[in-house]
Design a protein around this nucleic acid. Sequence first.
DNA 1: CATTCTGTAACACCACTTGTTACGCAATGA
DNA 2: TCATTGCGTAACAAGTGGTGTTACAGAATG
Lengths: 143, 143
Amino acid sequence: MRSDGRLARMLHVLVHMALLGGRETSERIAEMLNTNPVVVRRTLGALRDHGIVASEGGRGGGWRMAKSLDEITVLAVQRALDGGPILPAATSSDHPSCPVERASNAVLVAAHAEAEARLVEIYGATTLSEIARAAMETAKGQA
Amino acid sequence: MRSDGRLARMLHVLVHMALLGGRETSERIAEMLNTNPVVVRRTLGALRDHGIVASEGGRGGGWRMAKSLDEITVLAVQRALDGGPILPAATSSDHPSCPVERASNAVLVAAHAEAEARLVEIYGATTLSEIARAAMETAKGQA
DNA sequence: CATTCTGTAACACCACTTGTTACGCAATGA
DNA sequence: TCATTGCGTAACAAGTGGTGTTACAGAATG
């Protein structure tokens, strides 16, 4: 089905960056994400525009956290990546004046709005520090 | 963003078919949906496989409802169109053994599962007869 | 002033829905 | 019997959106 791995990737890399503490270059982050430095710049750039990370060019530059993990919610990352609805209702617009089409669309829009509200509630209540804690517990359990 | 107008289109056309009562050809349904007969056959075919509509070939053939509107939920139509998750979590799989990636994915999967549960609850509680009633009230109000 | 970074444009690729053409098969009815 | 009607399906192009990649400009450092 549909996929947009950006949110998952950003959560992943933000936690790593915070745990590592210092500055990371796009090159190194790309290795963490098993991808390309340009993709990293593109995606982290959106987070920088929302004050989650900061970037510096030139020698010794790279990316660093602009907030601590407990100040960043999953919702904030999502919003930085995409300002639109998270779960847009897929409506039809074949005959916009048709009452049946409108009623069908209205049902879908209302349902998606409720589902998105639930998702936003959870995203907004989850900080990245919780993810970091869960990860460290898992790692400890495996060690 | 993402779009998959099939569900909206099927709700639309099912209500119309029920209101019209008789048999409709792919050609006429395509006109309702402002699309192509082949697309109609493709999509209605999935509903036929789940007992929502029935099709007959040959002269005088076409499509007819196999159930009444109050026996069909939005959820049933959705399931007929796609058996998988409605709101799959977009996870990453760059480093499957990385605890941080796993923890990030787990958060997303859990959140999406809750949102989908809410969506399924609403879809399952909404029958097409409710859409038909809403559409007729709208039409009446406009007339 | 060379090096090391980010910033960004440009393009190909992949996956998926949609639109379209073409053709096969079944059922009807003269 | 046979032409007509309508579904069933394969095949292919188009549009969309994230991803991967190359190339190059700009800025900061030492």
